[in-house]
């Protein structure tokens, strides 16, 4: 059985130099699609992947990632906006790595495209009125 899931990988600074994704392909036969990558040598990195392959291999791949010390966040979660708390300030717009927030040009209201959201959770803590809620 094949699985395909979106995951967020948080790299500690000492891990950003390592070819982790290459191992996923070579050792476990998985395929990947990079949705967002923000990795610089010696700094904390963020990688959002759609990872696909045989179920058994997928699980082994995830186990390998966990053993490297990379923090894995599954995207079987959901981020929703509390419309009553959102003030449409726009602080989230530049925080979101997948551009799920955009300003409606005429009204300058903040539009939230749920389909673009990869549930990384960065907006949840960066939202000043705490209008973004992460459901686990």
């Amino acid at each position: 059985m094949n699985v395909s899931r979106r995951i967020v990988l948080h790299f500690p600074p000492n891990m950003t130099g390592q070819p982790v994704v290459c191992h996923l392909v070579k050792d476990f036969g998985l395929t990947f699609n990079i949705i967002k990558a923000s990795i610089s040598p010696g700094q904390e990195g963020l990688l959002i992947l759609e990872l696909s392959g045989e179920r058994k291999n997928y699980d082994k791949g995830i186990k390998y990632l966990a053993e490297t010390g990379i923090e894995i966040q599954s995207l079987s979660q959901d981020v929703v906006r509390d419309e009553a708390r959102c003030t449409h300030c726009g602080a989230c717009v530049t925080i979101c790595p997948t551009e799920a927030f955009a300003l409606e040009p005429k009204t300058r209201k903040v539009l939230f495209d749920h389909n673009k959201c990869v549930v990384c959770g960065l907006c949840v803590k960066a939202c000043p009125p705490r209008a973004m809620i992460l459901y686990l």
């Binding site: 003030t87 449409h88 300030c89 726009g90 602080a91 989230c92 717009v93 530049t94 925080i95 300003l103 009204t107 300058r108 209201k109 000043p128």
Partner: peptide
């Protein structure tokens, strides 16, 4: 949505709500 700082395009965001 963008300003130029030190020859770099920098995306902008507001903390104050214009619609409000």
């Amino acid at each position: 949505g963008n300003i130029r700082v030190r020859d770099k395009d920098v995306p902008t965001a507001s903390l104050s709500s214009y619609p409000k």
